[in-house]
Every structure is written in structure tokens, then in C-alpha cells.
């Protein structure tokens, strides 16, 4: 009984988190970029799109922030970055930085 109660309690705790965020949220958000930047950030070589896999988080976040603020000129990325919150961009950068 004690153990079941403990599991139920853990479930309740987890449920609060689950409503806030899916455990795979970063993966899911990053996948919205993959149409152009390749599955898991590995772009098709020679097709003119940047690969994001394995780039440092700091570099990715700086680029995204510069697109969003307009500091870095772009044809389309300034429009796309504005569609994501800073927290979402941070999760996306985390995910791609962790890809090999």
C-alpha cells in the first residue's frame, strides 16, 4: 500500500510537470526546423542550408537572437524566429547542440 501510494504521489507530481511540458518538447520543437535544416539538424550537403547538429548552444542562441532582433540580416529567419518564445529557442538550441 505504501509503495502504491508513493507511486501515485509521484504520478501526481509528474502530472503537474506533464501539463507544463512534454518530456520530448525540445525534440518536437527542433523538428519544426528540420524541413530546411535536415532531420536532427543534419542538412543535405551542398543544398545551401546550414547544418545545426553539434553547433554550440551559445552560438546557436546568439544567431537566433540576432535574427529575432533584426541585428543579423536575413531573407526569412528574422520572420521565423519571431514565431517562437525565447524559452522555445533555448530548448531548440539545446537539442541541436546535443546532436552529434
Amino acid at each position: 500500500m505504501k509503495r502504491l501510494t508513493a507511486i501515485a504521489a509521484v504520478c501526481l507530481l509528474a502530472s503537474a510537470g506533464a501539463h507544463a511540458a512534454d518530456p520530448n518538447l525540445a525534440r518536437n520543437l527542433a523538428a519544426t526546423c528540420a524541413n530546411c535544416h535536415g532531420t536532427n539538424g543534419k542538412a543535405v550537403p551542398g543544398a545551401g542550408m546550414d547544418s545545426l547538429a553539434g553547433e554550440s548552444k551559445a552560438k546557436l542562441l546568439q544567431k537566433l537572437a540576432d535574427f529575432k532582433s533584426g541585428d543579423k540580416p536575413a531573407s526569412i529567419m528574422h520572420q521565423i524566429t519571431k514565431g517562437y518564445t525565447d524559452e522555445q529557442l533555448s530548448l531548440i538550441a539545446d537539442y541541436y547542440a546535443a546532436q552529434k
Binding site: 530546411c36 535544416h37 535536415g38 532531420t39 543535405v44 543544398a47 542550408m49 531573407s75
Partner: peptide, 19 residues
Amino acid sequence: LEGKAAMGWAKNIWADMLA
């Protein structure tokens, strides 16, 4: 440049689906 991006988009999305 956007013409090149259009072809880059196509090659990457086809790969994202099928490669």
C-alpha cells in the same frame, strides 16, 4: 538567393521525409 533557397528547401524536406 530565394530561388537557391527554394531548391535547398526542396532537397532538405524530401530528405527529411524519405532519407
